[in-house]
Design a protein around this nucleic acid. Structure first.
Lengths: 336, 336
DNA sequence: ACAGATTTCTTAATCGTTTAAGATATTATA
DNA sequence: TATAATATCTTAAACGATTAAGAAATCTGT
């Protein structure tokens, strides 16, 4: 490895001069700087990230913290798209990202300790479900942190517009003639609470009287739980005509499970997903769903985080809500 | 941040003693070591990764190098599963991983330079298509490297058993009565070459005479290219009865594209995918495909890499072939 | 021509850790 | 008891960069 010392030896000047020349400091003459840069380039110099980090306390690395039980960020269609959005921003600015499986790290202080150990410049926290206690350690630290679909006091967050999503789905189903709309929602998280609230509000607006048994709890990204909820809905005397699922994956998965066990969802019952991942439009009939702009969510989060990292004096935080868009497929059919 | 110095002050000994005690060096008395460890734990000490890296030249970080044109590791169903497999191993051993989009980094020496700069302990290279020149820099370096589905002289590699996969698909199609089997393959890469060779060998074994127009080039993970190849196959006078696709995504995508444009693949024509990703069994009818054991591929690669990193004296390299398994769905139908 | 300002470079400390080599005390050996 | 061996600790240098403070040379204005 070629170091500043090697360059300084070749140039006949001190390492300090080399360092400052390469960093564009003003107290180095144009001529010297040019020469040093030329020699550095010729020798194939690359700064040692560890040394720089040690001295400057900046690692140019950000941690991607996930809490997922039986999943991981790589194979989760929604979170992986967010991660892709994050990376598209960070790599432009020369930051590395490192996915961290918080579940495996165990208790919260081990997570914080690990982050301190690694010296991440900032963190992006995202997950389907995690308790405040899981991130307590992180929140009490001074590490810049942006959360996704979850707000923490004093910290910036990016939120997908779950109110809009649920609302638009309900209104669209209504416009297609549906009056008996069921909602299979995820486990109790802020996201779920928002969607539930919005679902009820939308129904109220439309003067729909939704019986309580139309609201079925299930688990995000767990198709068996959605299938079970669906079976229960189908057994009701007063069946819904339309079922909204917690995500595309569960909507499609349920359709398949029931079909394979010989009791398919009857054609007169409409279904809709949520997320608008690639899965949705690979399906026939094309799924009606609400597309969360996951890539933009990731990009916004990365941008806010980098901004917080590079302007530590600005301590204000923001909450950004990223709108999505209704994807009209064929899975909600018109009825009268 | 609490440092060795802080601990040494509290314990009334030198930083060297503290360092050695925490690292379990033999020349520290049991008693002292215990005390130091206790104090360290109480103070919440965490070693500074940058300082350690600077001194030891070990970053405990490995780079995941991808060459993908219009995709990224996050949203590619096959590669992301490999990445998940890699992470499952590395995180146990305390290594961080960092995905690197080699395409964006441009010329090869920038890639090498970046890796040197970051000081990755090792690299895993994977991709659909890349030239030898892209990795020349890396190969000439002394950084431990394991490639996936690609062999480089003197370097270890993990290969998915493409010969087995193609062979089993052909033989299965044959067993279902198919004699006119077409093969839409990916762009020219070692993987494609292997599959093509195996396809032809299997056909020969079975005395199948495959006309050259049954071999159609397309692009991995590009459903439009597969759809185009399919249209051409369907226009042939002597149509195939079974079409093998380059991957599940393209197989399913093609089905959808053709169906949506009103000229669906006729029911008498069977299709099969490749990869065996989640997509495949989310489909109805269930896709017949060959499952690559992507998670194990990632795990094997990570294991080999960590081994090479931690035993630098062992310079031998290995090629591991990970077998897959035929997934029998309903997309290849029996004919007579 | 000379004090002071400016430009350009160097010296030296520092970040937090590891580790070879040296020092001291303790124990074993003859 | 003198000496060698061992156990345990300390000193100090090093990893490769950044940066405050100081030094030397050049320039400015009067």
């Amino acid at each position: 490895m070629v170091t500043l010392k090697d360059i300084s030896a070749r140039c006949g000047c001190s390492v300090a001069t080399v360092s400052k020349a390469l960093n564009g400091m003003p107290d180095i003459s144009q001529e010297t700087a040019r020469h040093i840069r030329a020699v550095a380039a010729e020798m194939g110099y690359m700064p040692n990230a560890a040394a720089r980090t040690l001295k400057t306390h900046r690692s140019r690395t950000i941690g991607l913290i996930m809490f997922l039980k039986n999943e991981n960020v790589w194979t989760h269609d929604f979170f992986s798209q967010i991660a892709a959005g994050i990376q598209s921003i960070t790599e432009e600015k020369g930051y590395d990202i490192t996915p961290i499986n918080a579940q495996k790290l165990g208790e919260t202080d081990r997570l914080l300790n690990y982050c301190i150990h690694r010296g991440y410049d900032g963190l992006i926290v995202m997950s389907a479900g995690f308790g405040e206690s899981d991130v307590q350690g992180l929140l009490s630290s001074r590490i810049p942190l942006v959360s996704i679909d979850h707000t923490f006091p004093g910290r910036s967050a990016v939120l997908s517009d779950n109110l809009q999503g649920t609302r638009e789905l309900v209104r669209y189903a209504y416009s297609m003639g549906h009056r008996r709309i069921a909602f299979i929602h995820g486990e109790d998280t802020p996201v779920t609470q928002g969607r539930l609230k919005s679902f009820c509000a939308a129904c109220e607006e439309l003067s729909l009287d939704i019986p309580p048994e139309y609201l079925k709890p299930a688990i995000y990204h767990n198709m068996e739980s959605a299938a079970q909820a669906t079976r229960e809905l189908l057994r009701l005397e007063n069946r819904p005509t339309c079922i909204l699922y917690q995500d595309d994956y569960c909507c499609i998965g349920t359709r398949n499970i029931l079909e394979r066990e010989g009791s398919p969802i009857p054609p007169e019952i409409s279904v809709a997903g949520y997320d608008g991942t690639r899965l949705a439009d690979m399906f026939l009939p094309r799924l009606t769903t609400f597309r969360q702009n996951s890539e933009m969510i990731g990009q916004e989060a990365a941008q806010m985080l980098l901004n917080a990292i590079e302007n530590p004096q600005e301590t204000h935080f923001r909450h950004i809500t990223v709108p999505g868009s209704l994807i009209i497929g064929e899975s909600i059919r018109r009825i009268d």
